[in-house]
Design a binder for these strands. Structure first.
Length: 254
DNA sequence: ATGGTAGGATTCCTA
């Protein structure tokens, strides 16, 4: 089973790139973030023609998550526990062949110690609460997406320059570890221990050319699935294509 | 030295 996650930064702007990537890679499951379209505007029919079922939670202009699956999806669930009806669309879950899969888009947080930053920390705490309330670490669970937090020094291009900056503050890293502490294994780190593997590069200042990136997109697996994990990759080539997203796909083989 | 680019909204917000 091959599972991928990708923040596409608008499915409208990335339509051809994502369709082409899906045709070539044929993942069993593809989790998307920042689709930036309502469900009516999502190109569901095109993915269905490629053999995928579509579960989506979209909104106008911002956010938006989806799961595409070659196998049928059951128990589709949108949002956190006690989300307001107008809460940003940042989380969708579905059960696929006995595996519970989540596609998550964690709030960016804007800048340390602003109200959006506090919301980001709260959102991660509420994600842990959802896991505690509805799931068990002994279950087969995949939590993947854009977490907007780099875990440790290996995951930022310059730990010195990034100390205390958004995506790498102690508070954000603690909040992410709280989620992982539910009972997850970082699939990419099972197979790659060295520094300098990134999933996001700023569009500005030639960041990709200089490889000034961050690893902020993850696939987290509970132990039963971690034991089945044979490979994990970051598809950096997706950033070399025309009109790329600022994020690239992360893929795990189970 | 605090810039720069991109997407999607409408002369600004989010990332």
């Amino acid at each position: 089973m091959r599972i991928a996650t990708w923040n596409v930064n608008s499915i409208r702007a990335r339509h051809d790139l994502v369709i082409d990537w899906t045709r070539r890679q044929r993942p069993d499951v593809l989790c998307l973030q920042e689709t930036k379209v309502t469900d009516e505007e999502f190109p569901a029919a095109e993915f269905q023609r490629l053999g995928y079922s579509v579960a989506m939670a979209g909104q106008r202009s911002y956010n938006g998550v989806a799961i595409l699956s070659q196998q049928p999806m059951n128990d589709i669930c949108i949002g956190l526990v006690d989300d307001a009806s107008d809460a940003p669309k940042r989380l969708i879950g579905a059960t696929i062949d006995g595996v519970r899969v989540f596609s998550a888009y964690v709030p960016n947080g804007q800048a340390p110690d602003t109200p959006p930053f506090v919301e980001k920390l709260r959102w991660l705490e509420r994600l842990r609460a959802l896991l505690d309330a509805r799931h068990d670490p002994g279950q087969s669970l995949v939590l993947c997406g854009d977490f907007n937090v780099a875990r440790d020094e290996r995951d930022v291009f310059s730990p010195e320059r990034f100390a205390g900056r958004l995506h790498f503050t102690i508070d954000e890293r603690k909040a992410l570890e709280l989620v992982i502490g539910f009972g997850f294994v970082d699939a990419f780190r099972q197979h790659h221990a060295d520094r300098g593997h990134f999933t996001w590069w700023d569009y500005r200042a030639g960041a990709f050319r200089l490889n000034q990136g961050l690893r902020i997109d993850y696939i987290f697996l509970t132990q039963p699935l971690a034991e089945r994990s044979t490979a994990a990759t970051i598809d950096v080539d997706a950033r070399r294509r025309e009109k790329p997203s600022d994020h690239v796909p992360v893929v795990v083989e189970l």
